[in-house]
């Protein structure tokens, strides 16, 4: 266990503050959506907010701001492979020989990349 009673008392306030901040960010992301930004900008804003929220959950609620090196190590490895998994299949998909033609039989398939 990582903290004595005094520490936990101090943390309680923090937990509620973070909860409130998360709700505010949810409001912001919905509001940003109402502004109908151009797609690339909208994606950037929404993902930036989501990453901020996720970091707050991970750092405070999951106590990642103060963890042991084995857990950091395992998560670092996971993050590296996560990035590989997210990016490399897409790169491979984009790097195809020649232009994209409808695969079999035609239809409304891929518009360019």
């Amino acid at each position: 266990m990582h903290s004595d009673h005094g520490d936990v008392h101090a943390s309680v306030r923090k937990y509620f503050m973070i909860g409130a901040a998360l709700l505010i960010f949810t409001g912001i992301t919905v509001a940003a959506n109402l502004m109908h930004l151009a797609i690339p900008l909208a994606i950037t804003v929404a993902l930036a907010i989501a990453i901020t929220k996720a970091s707050m959950v991970a750092a405070v609620f999951m106590h990642l701001s103060d963890e042991k090196k084995w857990i950091y190590g395992a998560l670092l490895l996971t993050v590296v492979f996560f990035i590989v998994l997210m990016s490399v299949p897409s790169f491979t998909n984009m790097d195809s020989i020649g232009r994209h033609e409808p695969a079999i039989g035609g239809g409304e398939h891929p518009a360019g990349h």
Partner: peptide, 11 residues
């Protein structure tokens, strides 16, 4: 399954 797949002559 991509669009327009035909199996045994049937879409």
């Amino acid at each position: 399954l991509p669009s327009g797949l035909v199996i045994s002559g049937k879409p």
